[in-house]
Nucleic acid binder design. Sequence first.
DNA 1: ACCTGAACACCGTTCAAGT
DNA 2: ACCTGAACACCGTTCAAGT
Lengths: 209, 209
Amino acid sequence: MARPLKPLISIDAVVTAALELIDESGDFSLPKLAARIGVSQSSIYNHVSGREEILELVRGRITEGDPQALDLAPGVEATWEDVLRSEIRTYRENFARHPRAAPLMVMQTVRNPHVIALYERMASALEEAGFRGADVASALAMIDSFAIGAALDLAAPGNVWDVAPGTESALGRAVEGASKLADRAETAFEFGLEALMDGLRLRQGRLGR
Amino acid sequence: MARPLKPLISIDAVVTAALELIDESGDFSLPKLAARIGVSQSSIYNHVSGREEILELVRGRITEGDPQALDLAPGVEATWEDVLRSEIRTYRENFARHPRAAPLMVMQTVRNPHVIALYERMASALEEAGFRGADVASALAMIDSFAIGAALDLAAPGNVWDVAPGTESALGRAVEGASKLADRAETAFEFGLEALMDGLRLRQGRLGR
DNA sequence: ACCTGAACACCGTTCAAGT
DNA sequence: ACCTGAACACCGTTCAAGT
């Protein structure tokens, strides 16, 4: 076949196909990706450096859903808490739309500009709150863990802990209590988000000490 | 060679070799594992069901480091906060000794009894604090995210975010501030742990509301 | 019961050859 | 510039054959 008049592949098509593959089955391989695009495996390397870059592009696609505007009463300034809460929620909602994508991203360094920009907005909010230097980094690390954890939670199989049902134990009761909820992951996320915000607010109050 | 008089492999040896492999290089495959034990790849399946079980056994080995006793003044009862803080710290310290193991565990359901027991102790502490049912599960999910995040942080390459050094931005300043610290991950962990405990304590106070 | 070697169905990446 | 097919060096798992 050799070189066609019009390219058979575009980076965009690669990313779209990759995300479809991930959404459908949760696993993703170059052979499957090539098959879906209808092209040979090796030709993908003409557009992209390899698997890692594809996944990083997928991260971009997932995250680029515009940062939802904070709608506040006119004239009211958004507080650092508003901003932080909103960014975390957006981040998590983006992954909620592609639950199976999270596990594939965890182990890769974040290079995507959209995601970097998101963390930049959070870092600014933390500075506005009065946090400085390493404290900002620590807070970001915590937020990051929480957000990734929440995303992984969405991808996780029904039970994270292999506890026999009806077990008389605190963990058994917790698992049972959660299983009654329509959206266990959602509830856990909201609980965690508020606890996290409380924790930060409290530390902010002590900053001058 | 066929069946030897004394088994060439023991489950214990498999786990030890697997953990060595992980600690040294961070990656782990059955061919490499077999080579290290000095046995053929397929014979491993006589002792273990496959890759997943091996990793779950490794999780056990890492976690079984005895739960450090809380040493308190005699007669003083450990509060739920003491217990929680100590368990989280222990969990994270265990992974600190094997930083490269964390990424391999993230995507697997926890089946190991030692780890289940650890979560059971945390669930009890949360009940003692007054949390019930889904709230216990939510708090555990949050703690879990945090602990796993902290563990992944130890395994992560130097920079989690690909920010150009000297960038004039809040994120740039945060990264720079953190890079000055001898133990960035350690500092972030302590910051997060205290913020998390604060968040839980505050929610506990509102439980009766 | 426990080992081996061969086989199977996968991976990601490279590269000469074609137009 | 962009595609193909073949090749390479890996995976995890299964299974008949040996003692």
